[in-house]
């Protein structure tokens, strides 16, 4: 139990470290890095998530049809 506590404290401190690091980088948002390339990636992800949602809804309607038959 004590060991677990130590591990948690350790992780908490690590997280603190990360937040401090993040604060240093605050002026450079993730999406502003590498010439804003991640914005392109995110746009593609949004595109496919929406397409997926639409197809999933159609899938559900077909499933309902299948159950009734």
């Amino acid at each position: 139990m004590v060991r677990l506590k130590h591990i948690f404290t350790c992780i908490a401190f690590l997280c603190l470290n990360i937040t401090v690091f993040a604060q240093q980088q605050e002026d450079q948002d993730f999406f502003f890095r590498s010439g804003k390339y991640y914005v392109v990636a995110a746009v593609l992800v949004i595109l496919f998530i929406l397409l997926f949602i639409y197809l999933r809804r159609m899938d559900k309607r077909v499933k309902k049809l299948e159950r009734r038959a």
């Binding site: 948002d29 999406f31 502003f32 804003k36 914005v39 746009v43 595109l47 929406l50 397409l51 639409y54």
Partner: peptide, 21 residues
């Protein structure tokens, strides 16, 4: 329906792009 889907896709991608430019 699919036209509406494309419209929503266009607005969502456009908003994200606009946020960073």
């Amino acid at each position: 329906k699919v036209g509406l889907l494309f419209g929503i896709m266009g607005i969502a991608t456009g908003m994200f792009w606009a946020n960073y430019t």
